[in-house]
Amino acid sequence: MNVTAEEIRTEVKRLIAEVTERTPEEISDRALFQDELGVDSLMAMEVMVAVDKKYKINIPEEEFAKIKNVDDTVAVVQRYLGAAA
C-alpha cells in the first residue's frame, strides 16, 4: 500500500480525535495519549483495530503498548506497512 507519512498522521489524528471527542487540530504530534489526552486502554485498542482495518496490517498488542503519541503511531504503521509490502 502506498501511503505517505502525512496521510497516516492525518488518519491517526482523526481517530484519536474521535475517541477522545476532540477536533483533530487539538491533537499534537507529541501529546501523550494516556496522560495528556486521556486515552485509556480500551480507547487505545479501538484505535489500534481501526488502524489495522484501514491499512490491512496487524500490529501486535505488545507493539501497541509501547506507543505513546501520534509520532510513535505513524512510525509503527509505516514499519508494518513496509513489512506488508
Partner: peptide, 13 residues
Amino acid sequence: TEGPNLVNPMEFP
C-alpha cells in the same frame, strides 16, 4: 462479517 480480530473492542462492554 469482518473477522473476530477487527471488531471494535469498545462495543464489547
